[in-house]
Design a protein around this nucleic acid. Structure first.
Lengths: 135, 135
DNA sequence: CTTGACCTTCCAGTGTGGAGGAAGGTCTAG
DNA sequence: CTAGACCTTCCTCCACACTGGAAGGTCAAG
């Protein structure tokens, strides 16, 4: 199938598919006599795999690693499990960080609704974002 | 004070301070006769303000907006409150997204520990990351 | 007078994941 | 035969927030 059809089937832009090939995420496909790329069904699966892994937060580099295992004929499972667990732990930390920021923002918003602009002190840029005191 | 001292006081690299000036986050400071930058106390506050706002997830563009209000002599409070609330909502969404990803990863990890590499099907790149079925 | 620690400007590159566009080849329909 | 819808390669650029390095000026100590 041509790149446009693959793009339509997977919802991945043709430009992006060529890019994945360039960065060795997708194997170079067969070429028709007119040099058009001619993709097969596994290409569809691989592309879906890439987007799926991406949506789980894996970067293209990690995805390439996983695929490389498979391409060497090894089962990537142990490696993938490791990646999964690492990313899971990273996510937990990141979520915690964001939750703290979000709480801080809510605190600021409450403070902002209580105070009026008249309380602005010229010495500060904005009291709302001044180093937070107790609230 | 020289840029190095400002850097030491605020823990912001001198290079970054020059960068902030270049992108109009920091006002161009006075210059000594030798053309060295000569910062005053408000520069310290502004720099701390920038880093503080940054740690709350504001981008440099948003921070510049806030500062611009102040520099025009207006109280940025209403605008800032709006930004705070928007970012807070964004964060809630983002956190939810990440939490879903993280749950999905945990599910995959559980599955991985139950299955053995022998279960790998050659037709897939890695069954662990295949489109998830019921678990 | 030299050394070393500062400072200056300017130009270029980092990483991530692509997007945009030019110039040109190919295929199908009418 | 021509239009237009594909496809090809190649090159450049985007946001984001810096960071590195070259080449050179300045200043205080010894």
């Amino acid at each position: 199938m041509l790149i446009g059809e693959l793009a339509a089937r997977t919802q991945v832009p043709a430009k992006t598919i060529r890019y994945y090939e360039e960065v060795r995420l997708m194997a170079p496909p067969a070429r028709a006599p007119n040099r058009y790329r001619d993709f097969d069904q596994p290409a569809v699966e691989r592309l879906k795999f890439i987007r799926g892994a991406q949506s789980l937060g894996f970067g293209l580099g990690e995805i390439r690693e996983i695929i490389a295992y498979r391409d060497r004929g090894e089962t990537p499972c142990a490696h993938v499990l490791d990646l999964i667990q690492r990313r899971s732990r990273e996510l937990v930390e990141r979520i915690d960080e964001l939750r703290r920021s979000q709480k801080e923002l809510e605190k600021l918003a409450r403070r902002a609704r209580r105070l009026s602009p008249k309380d602005c002190e010229p010495s500060q840029i904005c009291h709302l974002l001044a180093p937070a005191g107790s609230d």
